[in-house]
């Protein structure tokens, strides 16, 4: 069955995909550069909302601490924590979790993959 393209980014689909084949970005996601991701996280000031180990002044309390994110099974308590989903989430959280307070971030896909690699390195 051919799914409408508009559904390609929906979280439910990402979840279903997680069962038998990896999400689209996964191959790329594994190749993210964690150091570039760290730089992006620092320059975007993700720390305004999140406490992030290793980032100066990142002590926000609006969202959850990102310490040990790489060990967690779920993102935002609902999504599987794999590199592709994580990259999609940091770039456009509302498209995956409609009730979230986290806005879409001004990130390119490549930057999002790097950020996901950095976050996955937080163990």
């Amino acid at each position: 069955m051919r799914l409408p393209t508009a559904f390609a980014l929906l979280p439910a689909l990402a979840l279903l995909w997680g069962c038998d084949k990896p999400p689209v970005a996964r191959a790329d996601a594994g190749r993210g550069d964690a150091e570039d991701g760290r730089t992006t996280v620092a320059s975007l000031a993700c720390g305004a909302c999140h406490s992030i180990p290793g980032i100066r002044a990142a002590d926000g309390t609006v969202g959850p601490s990102l310490a040990g994110l790489g060990n967690r099974n779920f993102i935002a308590g609902t999504l599987p924590n794999d590199p592709g989903t994580l990259a999609a989430f940091v770039r456009n959280a509302p498209s995956l979790v409609p009730g979230t307070a986290m806005p879409a971030m001004p990130l390119s896909e490549a930057q999002a993959i790097d950020v996901a690699a950095f976050l996955a390195s937080l163990r």
């Binding site: 320059s43 975007l44 000031a45 993700c46 305004a48 909302c49 926000g60 309390t61 609006v62 307070a101 986290m102 806005p103 879409a104 971030m105 001004p106």
Partner: peptide, 19 residues
């Protein structure tokens, strides 16, 4: 204090007193 984008704007609106 913060770079300007929707994420930091949201942080500032909801948590200015912490920032």
């Amino acid at each position: 204090t913060l770079p300007n984008h929707a994420g930091t704007l949201a942080a500032w609106v909801t948590d200015a007193q912490a920032i």
